[in-house]
Design a binder for these strands. Structure first.
Lengths: 238, 238
DNA sequence: GATTGGGCGGTTGACAGACCACTCGCCGCG
DNA sequence: CGCGGCGAGTGGTCTGTCAACCGCCCAATC
């Protein structure tokens, strides 16, 4: 019969055109894009519409807006999901348990991939982190190293998609790690188990044994989840 | 010394206030929020600023805007990441391989969780899908059922965070599934392996054996990845 | 000669006011 | 009772304006 007439919102069309320009390689990371006035003139729309489109891109993290200077394409696309993800998490009342589930899923895979993809330099760095974590006496520093270890593994996995999601959830994960370590101190009075699991993961990555690395990370995550259950039992909120 | 004067953008402040209202429960899913004119007056800012904030919420999928009617809170938060995620994927030139890596990570976890969380009704539905997939002669229908199977498992896992990311990547995953099935037809001339793996996953979920379900899904994903390598070898683009 | 300060052009940020397109519900007319 | 039109309310867009800010140049100053 009749084809539905599609009347997109103007700013969506602008969005598409800008995306196409980026995909076509007209602009690359960090570039300054045309001023809002120029864009509005070239596209034949008002500055308002252009601003809405650019605002949308800013929200997503694709564009950085600097007053008095201009609008720039983001340099680092891997971190660009943070804003929307964290907002969604905040609003949908995501609990620690769900954050841990996501982490479990992603980090098993990063361990698997890192075992294959890691460079020698990355391996060295991972080993340094683990060593420092075992010798340090400052719990705050140890927690920070714990966090770093997981991120360095994720970076060594060379999977930008997974990495960007991990980054997006990063501050949630950080709280998670701290909470878990508190739980461990309370109920277990020691990190021997955690440290040995870190060592096992590292050993598998050193051997480039993907399956083993995945299994070790899986065990680590399960251990973490058991601590989490202690925490939830003692502290049913959240 | 001097404290740096912090001057947030107006629309960000509005964003925060709206978020707080939502968190405080003043509005709930599907509600109509105050009109832009009212909001701008109550907040003491221009309508432009309010619109920018609402636009931001629309982009991440928290708000649905309908001309002539009003702005509404989204009913379903699980699908709200789609826009930014898919845009990012499109722009960062994500390849099939990375999509599969993400899928591998998430779906192993959904299988694990679904084994524990699934209801009887969901189990029944999964079994119907597998049965129909094995008996159907229409490849297009089989591909669709394949897709459905994975999503139904993810839904049964009751992990909104993981589910929403899967949804966000859904159209990429759909292309992936179709591509893989083509590869299988080309190089293997049959789906016996795939079907038996689906059966194995289902059996583990029926037994509520989380570890087994995760392992079966893991094997399934690895199988898929091997087909993917065939595909890449034959077709190095993408 | 180096530094400072101001002026200038260009940019984004915010605003007010207007008009358009659309939706819905009311109300009167047939 | 049904229908059509009208008007109020809403988001969508546009225009014009001003403020805040940045980078640059250049002249005045020390």
């Amino acid at each position: 019969m009749f084809v539905k007439i599609e009347q997109k919102k103007v700013f969506l069309e602008i969005l598409e055109q800008i995306q196409e320009q980026i995909k076509a390689g007209a602009w690359s990371a960090g570039d300054k894009l045309p001023s809002e006035r120029v864009l509005s003139e070239e596209l034949g729309v008002s500055r308002t519409a252009v601003r809405e489109a650019i605002r949308a891109l800013e929200i997503i993290g694709l564009v950085r807006c600097v007053q008095g200077e201009g609008n720039f394409l983001a340099e680092d696309l891997t971190r660009c999901l943070m804003q929307p993800l964290s907002m969604m998490f905040a609003l949908s009342g995501t609990g620690v348990r769900q954050v841990q589930q996501l982490r479990h899923a992603l980090e098993v895979e990063t361990a698997r991939l890192a075992a294959v993809e890691r460079s020698e330099a990355e391996l060295l760095q991972l080993e340094q982190i683990v060593n420092r974590m075992e010798t340090s006496k400052d719990e705050q520093e140890r927690a920070e190293l714990d966090r770093q270890l997981h991120y360095r593994i994720a970076e060594a996995a060379r999977s930008p998609m997974i990495l960007s999601i991990l980054y997006a959830a990063s501050h949630l994960i950080e709280n998670l790690i701290i909470g878990i370590r508190v739980s461990i101190m309370t109920y277990d009075s020691g990190f021997a188990m955690i440290d040995s699991q870190h060592r096992a993961i590292l050993a598998a990555i050193r051997l480039k044994d993907a399956k083993l690395a995945a299994r070790c990370m899986d065990e680590h995550m399960e251990q973490v989840e058991s601590y989490l259950m202690h925490l939830e039992k003692a502290n049913p909120n959240n």
